[in-house]
């Protein structure tokens, strides 16, 4: 009956059937590098020949387009039996920013959920092998929409080496359970991470570390430069390789021909 109450929910599942794998970058703490990591991962997947989509699910504060250096007035989704995302640097890119035009959009939770349903039910990802999803920090509406209505996705939990961020990541692991594909400790400067309650991940998952790299901040808006950073080299070696292995196994979703 819930589908009659909101007909978009059925369409969300239908639209995502067109996608091979959904990989969600999530964190409970803000500012740990989800957006940089999502963009870098998408571009690198594209470079490896994987048909890739990138969805910015941060409705109130989208920033992925800024990292990509996209002029939102020029690259725009096309209306065609729904909405087809524009292709930027070989990646199909969708963001609520195309509609909010970069203005502040303060939304309460119910409207965030509704906006996410609208975007997921209208966007056509036809032919996309891996859909990378950048999320806002926290364990609120965005994450719950994914958990309840998208269901089949894999999560990469992102944290910094800070004790508090690691503790928060462990909590997020408890919520995501078996969906956790890997833990990424970003801005890692060496040494043993002090706290990591791997028992709470719900499943054994690899831990990847990405270096703190000044070049990252300077490359915001310049994808070519971002890809030449030490950060991106490590993203490619560790995370992109992991995702490609998943995709290669190809059993998660049937990819329509």
């Amino acid at each position: 009956m819930r589908y009659l109450a909101d007909p978009r929910l059925e369409a969300v599942s239908e639209r995502l059937k067109e996608v091979g794998e959904v990989v969600v970058f999530a964190s409970s703490k803000g500012g740990v590098g989800k957006t940089l990591l999502s963009v870098s991962t998408s571009l690198l997947l594209g470079r490896r020949g994987v048909s890739t989509g990138l969805l910015d699910l941060d409705v109130t504060n989208p920033t992925a387009h800024l990292v990509m250096g996209i002029d939102i007035a020029r690259a725009r989704p096309i209306e065609e039996r729904g909405v087809v995302p524009p292709e930027v640097y070989g990646v199909k890119f969708m963001s609520p920013v195309f509609f909010t035009q970069g203005r502040a959009a303060p939304l309460r939770g119910e409207y965030i959920s509704s906006a996410i349903r609208e975007v997921l039910s209208m966007t056509r990802w036809t032919g996309v092998g891996v859909l990378v999803v950048d999320t806002p920090p926290g364990m609120s509406d965005e994450l719950l929409e994914l958990l309840t209505y998208v269901r089949k996705f894999r999560a990469v939990v992102v944290t910094t080496p800070s004790v508090l961020a690691l503790e928060s990541a462990a909590r997020l692991g408890e919520v995501l359970g078996p969906r956790v594909e890997a833990l990424v400790i970003n801005m890692y400067t060496g040494g043993e991470p002090r706290v990591w309650r791997s028992a709470n991940l719900g499943r054994p998952a690899p831990v990847y570390t990405l270096p703190y790299d000044r070049e990252v901040e300077e490359s915001v808006g310049d994808p070519g430069r971002l890809l030449s950073t030490r950060f991106s080299r490590e993203v490619d070696r560790q995370i992109v390789s992991h995702v490609v292995r998943l995709f290669g196994s190809g059993s998660y979703y049937p990819v329509p021909r």
Binding site: P77, P96, F98, Q101, A104, A105, L107, S114, E118, M122
Partner: peptide, 25 residues
Amino acid sequence: AIHFLPEAAYAYVRCPRCGSPDFSI
């Protein structure tokens, strides 16, 4: 923009009386 994403209204509409962004549809 609002046609595509009705919630985008929150980027453009404020309460005509008090200017608050916190309103219900």
